[in-house]
Design a protein around this nucleic acid. Structure first.
Lengths: 231, 231
DNA sequence: TGTTTCTCAAAGATATGACGTATTCAAGTG
DNA sequence: CACTTGAATACGTCATATCTTTGAGAAACA
């Protein structure tokens, strides 16, 4: 998944630094400086910068240098950008943005899933709903998280919409971050789990409306919890 | 906005070729071959490939070459990928995906806009709604399209959610494509225009529910029209 | 003094040659 | 037949040279 090699390492330094605001908008980097600072050749620096340029995080201009672009220009849907922002000082804002996005997308995806899910996916959702119940009761947070991620990713995939499906990893990152940074109840709420079971049942039954409503309740709850935690 | 220089030109050849399926999944390109075919140096080829790699459209491996990745891996939210797919053989599928996405996002954005829009944005929406009426009556399709794009982009921006805001250009591309390829009624429908006015009024009045409902009706209509046109 | 034009140096853009390194495939070996 | 080994291959990285654009300051001019 990650970009390999030296450019990947450089990217792993520059990306988070820019995403966190440590290197502010409008700041100018020079290629030669980066070569020295990271002890790599021009080739590597240029390729890394090109990738960042592809994400619209920087722009390279002759006689000027490599300038950090305003945040409003960034490809905010790029998985790397999302991950970098989640890891840094921008985490609260990023979580809020993603929360709204989830609230828009996941209920719609659940409705579509009710129509388009394969038998396999329906079975998987049911079984994951059971697993959620079990791991929650056992207070096994790690296993619970994995199943939760899997559940949401499966719904998104079952919507048969490639763009929704791609948000699976992103939602996974949100759920992981939320657990890591203790932005959720330490004990998964029984009500939320029951809602997951409802989604699974509705999808199995082909009841789009019910699936959508239950999913909306889940995400709304998560968003409210987030609001409480972040003020 | 575009990537500059020779890598940009190379990208403008390779990207659409891959996006359209002309170069199929699993196909292997060799760097040297690309150098010769496009008459550029390794430097340029490598940087272009790096950018495509950043979009997950290709993966470069030693001793193997540059292999085209399965479509399911692509960064389907990257504006370039979207544009390339809209321009090529994938247009119908891309329009359908974007249609579902719009149906999920735009009503939510309209609801948020009703709460968060600035006075300036509210005025702009009202004025754009008027312009839509005028240009539709004058059958000025080009001007109508511009105002339509501006309207939807303004709503998305007014939602105060960076991720929604970023979809403005994408929605614009959809509307443009739909007009270019005659996938909409040649005469804008009076009903759709009235709905735009309703959205504007609801946002001005801070009536989130109404704004959301009207916007949902707009996008649903567009999606149904698309379904008719594409079968 | 203000404005325009010119010049030059700075910084990235491109080309190229050399070498490093991981990976595959096949020949060789037990 | 399984395993090891080695060599060919294609990308990865480095270093260097040259080209091109462009911004800022100097110079010329009104």
């Amino acid at each position: 998944m990650e970009i390999q090699g030296l450019p990947g390492r450089l990217l792993a330094e520059l990306g988070p630094a820019i995403a966190s605001g440590e290197v502010p908008e409008g700041a100018v980097l020079r290629a030669e400086e980066l070569e020295e600072r990271f002890g790599v050749s021009r080739t590597v620096v240029r390729e890394s910068v090109r990738i960042l340029e592809g994400m619209r995080m920087v722009a390279s201009r002759r006689r000027v240098g490599i300038t950090v672009q305003p945040k409003s220009d960034w490809d905010v849907f790029d998985p790397l950008v999302i991950r970098w922002r989640l890891a840094g000082a921008d985490r609260p804002a990023q979580l809020r943005s993603l929360g709204s996005l989830r609230l828009a997308v996941e209920p719609a995806a659940a409705a579509l899933a009710a129509h388009h899910a394969t038998d396999d996916e329906r079975r998987r959702l049911s079984s994951l709903a059971v697993e959620l119940t079990v791991t929650a009761r056992a207070a096994d947070l790690a296993a619970f998280l994995q199943h939760d991620i899997d559940f949401h990713a499966t719904v998104l995939r079952a919507s048969r919409n490639e763009m929704f499906a791609h948000l699976g990893d992103t939602v996974g990152a949100v759920l992981t971050g939320r657990t890591e940074y203790h932005l959720m109840p330490h004990q998964p709420e029984p009500y939320a789990i029951r809602l997951h079971r409802e989604v699974a049942e509705a999808v199995c039954a082909g009841d789009a409306e019910h699936a959508e409503r239950a999913m909306r309740t889940i995400v709304t709850g998560a968003l409210e919890e987030l609001g409480r935690q972040l003020g």
